[in-house]
Structures are given as C-alpha cells and as structure tokens.
C-alpha cells in the first residue's frame, strides 16, 4: 500500500522531498489528487513501510502535513 502526504505550501512539499532524499527514503512528487483536495500543487507519494520514518522527520522539522491512504 502507498500513502500520500499533503502539505499546505509548495515550500513545505520541497522541504519534505529534500528531507526524504537526505534520509534515503524513496518518494515520488505527484500532483495533489483532486479527490482528496482542491489544491493544485504537489504532494509526496510514499511506501507504507516508510510512513513512520517520514512522519517522524517532517514533524521534527515543523512541517505541517496530512496523510492519506492511496
């Protein structure tokens, strides 16, 4: 299963992608799914196995986010 992480701003999405890269966590930048949100920006798609690690990292770095199951 995969998860989608949504961010309030482009800046936060980019910061989160960089943190994933720095921590060797695989993620894919995707458009925000229309059925989840009216946002027209970017979201991150991640594997279920990485969810806990990513959540910990983004919270530690003060990045506001929401997580959805795909």
């Amino acid at each position: 299963m995969k998860h989608i992480i949504l961010f309030k701003t482009t800046r936060d999405a980019i910061r989160a992608q960089r943190l994933c890269k720095r921590n060797d966590i695989s993620c894919k930048v995707i458009p925000v799914p229309r059925d989840i949100s009216s946002e027209c920006g970017m979201a991150l798609e991640i594997h279920n196995s990485d969810l806990d690690r990513i959540t910990e990292i983004v919270i530690k770095n003060g990045i506001s986010h929401d997580i959805y199951n795909k």
Binding site: T10, M42, A43
Partner: peptide, 21 residues
C-alpha cells in the same frame, strides 16, 4: 513555474526558489 503542478520541471524551478530563500 513555482508550485501549482508536480512534474519535474516545476519541481526543479520551485526547488531553486526555495534554495534561494
């Protein structure tokens, strides 16, 4: 452009703006 889409061209342009910040 900055944000608003998710394909690599937009991501790179936006990432440069954030690097500048």
């Amino acid at each position: 452009t900055y944000g608003r889409s998710a394909y690599p061209r937009v991501f790179e342009a936006s990432a440069n703006v954030e690097s500048l910040r």
